[in-house]
């Protein structure tokens, strides 16, 4: 589904990603961990098409197509979703209008007619129940005045609405209380099918009590320096990152 080869990227003349290799297949859940500032969000943003980051080398293909050639909106319509670490507030753009536009842009891309107003509201109700998001939130402007946790839930809600084939969730678990964490994880699990895949960026093993990953990767200084099964997360929780740095000869 996603094949990343030797990917380098920089921001404002600073090299951040320094040779990323990663393959994600349908049905898999990957976890990316790593110390602050190692480049996790950068990778997520580069994949989602944020033009603030410049890819200087390497390739990324998504379902056989050259991902790096596509604009951000086309990537989304091809089925890629980024759950932001810091979702932005957009005053004046209502949640309903935003989602309706997004959903119908996806449909247009697939040559489907736009949803009727009532079908759209039905879809929204259904997905709201799934992620148990407060009804009031969807009557407001996008993320405006949402609490940290509400913003994260809203990301999952949008994911549910758009049904991506590959979701990259950047620290969606941070800032969630225990109940919210369970709800969000449930949402991810419920949306999981053999045809889609998830990349979870997280700092905490506790998320993995709810979501069972197939692979855990450690991103350090712009490279994936270690990959293993879910047991790696436990080991990191226990020992931190020093032993990995040592292994790398630092």
């Amino acid at each position: 589904m996603l094949v990343i080869k030797d990917l380098y990227a920089k921001v404002e003349e600073k090299d951040i990603l320094k040779g990323i290799n990663l393959t994600v297949n349908a049905g898999e859940v990957h976890v990316i961990m790593g110390p602050n500032g190692s480049g996790k969000s950068t990778l997520a943003n580069v994949l989602a098409g944020n033009t603030n980051f410049e890819v200087t080398h390497g390739t990324a293909t998504f379902n056989g197509k050259d991902l790096l050639e596509m604009s951000a909106d086309v990537r989304a319509k091809e089925g890629l979703f980024l759950g932001f670490q810091y979702p932005v507030e957009i005053p004046g753009v209502s949640m309903v209008n935003f989602l309706k536009t997004a959903v119908n842009e996806h449909r247009k891309y697939r040559d489907q007619p736009p949803l009727s107003a009532s079908d759209f509201l039905k879809l929204m109700r259904e997905k709201k129940t799934l992620v148990q998001i407060d009804s009031q939130l969807t009557n407001r402007s996008v993320n405006e005045g949402f609490s940290g946790g509400e913003k994260k839930k809203n990301e999952i809600f949008q994911m549910a609405m758009l049904e991506p084939s590959l979701a990259i969730l950047d620290e969606t678990d941070s800032g969630l209380d225990i109940d919210a964490l369970r709800i969000v994880s449930n949402g991810v699990n419920l949306l999981k099918t053999p045809n889609n895949a998830t990349i979870l960026v997280t700092h905490y093993q506790r998320l993995l009590d709810y979501i069972i990953p197939d692979f855990v990767h450690v991103l350090y200084q712009g490279r994936i320096v270690k990959s293993a099964g879910k047991e790696l997360a436990l080991e990191l929780e226990e020992k931190g990152y020093d032993w990995i740095k040592k292994e790398l000869g630092e």
Binding site: A72, V93, L162
Partner: peptide
């Protein structure tokens, strides 16, 4: 135009032109 907001809208499948319009319209609508 807030570039971060623009990218957020684009990342949901809304093309750049439409996303810009949404942001301008939101600004004007107040």
């Amino acid at each position: 135009i807030n570039e971060e907001a623009l990218f957020y809208l684009q990342s949901r499948g809304i093309n750049e032109k439409e996303a810009r319009l949404m942001l301008m319209f939101a600004f004007a609508h107040e």
